[in-house]
Design a protein around this nucleic acid. Structure first.
Length: 427
RNA sequence: GGAGGGGUAGCGAAGUGGUCAUAACGCGGCGGUCUUGAAAACCGUUUGAGGGCAACCUCACAAGGGUUCGAAUCCCUUCCCCUCCGCCA
């Protein structure tokens, strides 16, 4: 959520910068400026009347004690009370309109973000490793998984439906090994490991920006109205909702494994095979709460921390900075990490690292004080996948496949797997 | 799911229609006095949000409604916590 005072004072600038997201919000901004001045007029009116009401109310007990007739005062106060009620009702209405517009306005892109139309305008920042050359025709991971009998979408389709997977045998162990390897890398770097709830309430989904705009992308629990988390970012960021943090504790760093659930309305037909796009997938997430002065340095180190686990696995990848037209709703700046996938013959997103600045913390009221006497201000929140587990397994299967159909286990995972190669007979 | 008890400052807790929310009282935190230093004792101080150039004003007693001239207090709805029972891993 943007600061309405900032919008009021910089209306044209805000319009311009939001326009770089390839959508025109001029009408909303103009409306906000009008609503804000209307709101302040209504506040002046209601508060003046309330002050009068409070003053008179305090006198009534004394007058009664003195035996005076208070009936005429009651008559007057009744009118005043009705006037307050009417003005407060209008104020509520104006506040609700302001809130609705603000909640549906995306974040302002940071100045360093390349202006562009879509993902074609993303800028490559750096590369690690070289796409592997095979002296045989490499197969896509779903074929490898099927041949080794470690990935089974057919049974999942029977038991649940499309876009779900059973992992079996060495496949299930590989998924678990990757999770453990990622978490061990991160907690050793000072990220506090948390294991979050997989369902959250509406306030949490609103706090991180999934709601109200993207409700159709989320799975909702019929019983109680909770939402299945689309990412651990939601429960972990909301841990500090409505809190005032001690500035001395910043940056606060968490890593969290969770399953993630996405309805992804509108992506039918894309990546229908394999592990790339599932309704349920595993992810290790990194979340930071940072002082605004250092949040962009924290974004750089967060991205490096996510990259480190891919380097550890020897998976070739690159880092791109998303253009203004490709960035997510809540983000001010995003780096995607893309891993090389032989089956796609290109780099595929495996992590997304973002600085949300105060966009989430304003929605979720996550504040801090530098010192005990300092005024409260909003923290900057950041998060990044560290990294997507299913896509990592897919990348391992494809990049480490051998001509005989087996898959070599990357060295870093061998202690977790207890073997150095996956063969069919391992089931 | 059933029965009961709760939700008030960082924590514990008093307040059950106005003159106790500028929230009693206790603990903790911060500053000071005393001391070589510390402890103890004593004194002071200690929520957040909004509006206003300012003086200052308004709001918040889990959340949202209602009754009333006036609500922490009475009524309704929802959420959360605790105890017991049932069920369950």
């Amino acid at each position: 959520m943007l600061d309405i005072k900032y919008i009021k004072d910089n209306a044209e600038l805000v319009k311009e910068r939001l326009l770089t997201r390839q959508k025109d919000f001029s009408a909303e901004i103009d409306q906000l400026v009008d609503l804000y001045s209307e709101r302040n007029a209504l506040i002046a009116e209601t508060e003046g009347k309330k002050a009068e009401q409070n003053k008179t109310s305090k006198m009534i007990p004394r007058l009664k004690k003195e035996g005076k007739d208070v009936t005429p005062i009651f008559e007057e106060m009744k009118k005043l009370s009705e006037g307050i009620k009417a003005a407060a009702e209008r104020l509520n209405c104006v506040d609700a309109q302001i809130e609705e517009i603000l909640l549906n306005l995306p974040n302002l892109p940071h100045n360093s973000v390349p202006v562009g139309k879509d993902d074609q305008d993303n800028v490559e920042i750096r590369r690690w490793g070289e796409p592997k050359r095979f002296d045989f025709e490499p197969r896509p991971h779903w074929e490898i998984g099927s041949a080794l009998k470690i990935l089974d979408p057919e049974t999942a389709a029977k038991v649940t439906g499309a876009r779900f997977h059973f992992y079996k045998g060495a496949g299930a162990r590989l998924e678990r090994a990757v999770v453990n390897y990622f978490l061990d890398c991160h907690w050793k770097k000072g990220y506090v490991e948390v294991f979050p709830p997989y369902m959250v309430n509406r306030d949490s989904m609103t706090g991180t920006g999934q709601l109200p705009k993207f409700e159709e992308d989320a799975f909702k629990v019929a019983n109680n109205g909770f939402f299945l988390i689309p990412t651990a970012e939601v429960p972990v960021t909301n841990m500090h909702r409505n809190e005032i943090l001690d500035g001395g504790t910043l940056p606060i760093k968490y890593c969290a494994y969770s399953a993630c659930f996405r309805a992804e309305a509108g992506t039918a037909g894309r990546d229908t095979r394999g592990l790339i796009r599932q309704h349920q997938f595993n992810k290790v997430e990194l979340v930071k709460f940072a002082d605004p002065d250092t949040s962009y340095e924290e974004l750089e180190s967060l991205t490096l921390d996510a990259q480190a686990v891919l380097i550890g696995l020897g998976l070739p990848h690159r880092v791109v900075c998303l253009s203004t037209g490709d960035m997510g709703f809540s983000s001010a700046k995003t780096y995607d990490i893309e891993v090389y996938m032989p089956s796609y013959n290109r780099y595929v997103e495996i992590s997304s690292c973002s600085n949300f600045e105060d966009f989430q913390s304003r929605r979720a009221a996550i504040r801090f004080k530098r010192t005990a006497t300092d005024k409260t201000r909003f923290v900057h929140t950041l998060n990044g996948s560290g990294v997507a587990v299913g896509r990592t397994v897919a990348a391992i299967l494809e990049n480490y496949q051998n001509a005989d159909g087996t898959v070599t286990i990357p060295e870093a995972l061998r202690p977790y797997m207890g073997c150095d190669v996956i063969k069919e007979e391992m089931l």
